[in-house]
Design a protein around this nucleic acid. Structure first.
Lengths: 139, 139
DNA sequence: CATAATTAAATTGTACACAATTTAATTTGT
DNA sequence: ACAAATTAAATTGTGTACAATTTAATTATG
C-alpha cells in the first residue's frame, strides 16, 4: 500500500517532468525568435486572434493577471505587441500585434517543424496523449 | 499550413497546462502537510530512499541545485529534513529525514487517494498517459 | 607531488506562477 | 440617481525554474 507514495507511481510527476522536458526542447528554437516559452504561447494566441484582452488570454492559457501583466510588458518592450485600454470599457486592456509581431509569425513556422523531430513519439502516440491531456483540461 | 501554429495543435501547450492543472488539484491536500508541490516530490524521493545527495535528487526530479538549494533549506526550516555534508566527500550534501519527516509519510498516504478521485481519467487512460510520458522522459 | 581538471553545491540574475490584496471602472439594486 | 456589488488589471509577496558563474573539495596528470 505504501507503493502509492512512490514517485514513479504518481501521475503528477511524469506529467510535470515531461512538460518541462518538452519546454526545454523548445528553447533553442524560441531563442531565435527572442521569446521565452510563455511569451511564445501568448504570441500563438495573438497570431490566431487579434485584439485579445488580458482576461481572455488568461482563460486560454490558464494564467492570471499576476503572471500576464509583467509578461505582456516585456513582450511590448521587445516591440511585438501594444497594450491599450479598451475605449468601450477602460477596465479592459486590449493586446494587439505590431508589424514586427505579425512578421514574427512567419519565422515561428519553423518552431513546430523542428520540435516534431525532437520529440520521439509516433503520430498515434501524440494523438492519444493529446486526447487524454484535453480530457484533463476539460471543465 | 498556418494551422501548425495554432495553440491547440501544439503538444507542448496541453502538456504544460494539464501539468499545472493537476498540480493545482494537489494543493488542498498538500496544504494539510504544509508542503508545496515541489517540496512534496522531494519528500517522495526521501520516503523511498534515505540519505540522498543534492545531485541524485536533481537527477530523479529533473531539477538543478539552483532550484534545490533554497527548496531544501525551506524544508529543513519546517523540520522535515536535515542537510549534512558527507564525511567521505565534503562536496556532497546528504539529505536525511527527521523524525517529523518520517511521521509525515503516514499523513501523506491520503494524498494519492484524494487525487485519484479528482482526476477524471479511467485506469486505462491513466496507464496509457503514464507510458507515453515516460517515453518522452527516457534518455 | 603540485598543479590542472573535474565535480558538487551554492550563488546570482532573470522569468515565470499564483494567492491575496488593491485600484479603478462599470453594473446593479433600491 | 447613487451607494453597493462586481469586474478587470495591477500590485505584492512567496516559491519555484534554470542558465551562468563562483566556491570549495577531490581527482587526474605531467
Amino acid at each position: 500500500m505504501f507503493d502509492c507514495l512512490k514517485l514513479e507511481n504518481q501521475l503528477c510527476f511524469p506529467l510535470y517532468a515531461a512538460s518541462k522536458e518538452v519546454i526545454r526542447k523548445y528553447k533553442p528554437f524560441l531563442d531565435k525568435l527572442d521569446l521565452t516559452y510563455t511569451q511564445y504561447i501568448v504570441m500563438l494566441v495573438l497570431w490566431e486572434n487579434e485584439n485579445v484582452n488580458v482576461k481572455e488570454l488568461g482563460e486560454k492559457l490558464f494564467l492570471d493577471s499576476g503572471t500576464l501583466t509583467p509578461l505582456l510588458k516585456k513582450i511590448e518592450d521587445k516591440g511585438y505587441i501594444i497594450r491599450n485600454k479598451s475605449e468601450y470599457d477602460e477596465r479592459n486592456l486590449v493586446i494587439s500585434l505590431t508589424k514586427d509581431g505579425k512578421i514574427l509569425k512567419r519565422k515561428a513556422l519553423d518552431v513546430p517543424k523542428g520540435i516534431s523531430k525532437c520529440v520521439n513519439l509516433t503520430n498515434e502516440e501524440a494523438m492519444t496523449l493529446y486526447n487524454i491531456l484535453y480530457k484533463i483540461l476539460k471543465k
